[in-house]
């Protein structure tokens, strides 16, 4: 283990480590803590210049106000309407492509794989004008469907990379054995490989959920109205309305951040497994 485990060090070192941990954490999360405190401050505190002290009273009413005075509930609902179908669509497509690329050797395999990987690294600004134009022409502009279709296509790149690598690492004897016994390829996919892919599917669902929930660029490019905009784009316009009302901005920001945060804490193992794929050899 590196560095040397602290238990093997002197008592003084152990204690100072234990003291440093929370201090470092507070310092690290300082901006976030500030915003969290601001979000429960009554407006009068801010007006009176009490920006940092403790709130004079806990104003959870800020949260109530965010929900009643702004369409944030609708925005959050839109986010779910975009995120969940995207996760499902991406997983379906990438299980298929990952299977095809991970199991079979055929001409062009590596080039198709290469295409997915390269597309995944592309700065998405280069897609903006054509994709927006296409979405308008399809009549899907300013709909959650239009946004979902794009996300599914784009995320398929990353997920294929992920699934392909995962499937490649599965024990090949399994598939060979099934083939010897005459099982069709489709059944191999369904009965043999898919069940083994559950951990990858779990990891990708959390990852994609977070990526899509947090997407801001495409939300601003492809949607405009409060009936369709996800919460990231919604926050931008709310920020324009709540000028100088930092207690509302803070509360709104925290509300918008909650779903992916909850997802992360609930499915931490899968999340990190997905994110760090390839970080160990």
């Amino acid at each position: 283990m590196f560095p040397r485990p602290i238990e093997q060090s002197s008592r003084a070192a152990r204690i100072s480590y234990q003291v440093m941990l929370p201090l470092a954490l507070i310092l690290w999360l300082l901006p976030l803590i500030g915003v969290a405190i601001t979000s429960v401050k009554p407006a009068s505190d801010l007006a009176a210049g009490n920006y940092f002290g403790l709130p004079s009273s806990l104003a959870f009413s800020n949260y109530a106000e965010v929900f009643t005075q702004s369409p944030i509930g609708q925005y959050i609902f839109n986010s779910f309407k975009v995120t969940i179908p995207t996760v499902i669509g991406t997983l379906v497509l990438s299980c298929l492509t990952g299977f095809a690329l991970g199991i079979y050797r055929f001409r062009g395999n590596i080039w198709i794989f290469f295409m997915f990987v390269a597309g995944n690294f592309v700065p998405f600004q280069i897609l903006m004008v054509p994709v927006r134009d296409m979405t308008v022409n399809l009549g899907l502009y300013n709909t959650t469907t239009g946004l979902v279709l794009f996300h599914v296509a784009f995320q398929t790149g990353f997920c294929t990379l992920f699934m392909g690598n995962f499937i490649r690492a599965l024990p090949r004897e399994l598939i060979e054995a099934a083939r010897v016994e005459g099982v069709t390829e489709i059944r191999i996919f369904w009965y043999v490989v898919l069940p083994l892919m559950r951990p990858a599917i779990a990891a990708l669902s959390v990852l994609i959920f977070t990526f899509i929930w947090n997407d801001y660029f495409w939300a601003t490019v492809l949607t405009t109205s409060k009936e369709t905009q996800p919460v990231t784009a919604g926050l931008y316009s709310l920020n324009g309305q709540w000028i100088a009302q930092w207690q509302l901005v803070s509360a709104g920001a925290i509300v918008a951040a909650l779903p992916p945060v909850a997802m992360f804490f609930l499915m931490q193992r899968h999340f990190i497994a997905g994110l760090t794929l390839g970080a160990v050899k």
Binding site: T224, S225, Y236
Partner: peptide
Amino acid sequence: FQNFDHEGYKTSIRNFLTAE
């Protein structure tokens, strides 16, 4: 009637005039 954020509207109008 549907109300938009003042600043956001200036961007949105380009889009909704063509789209819907």
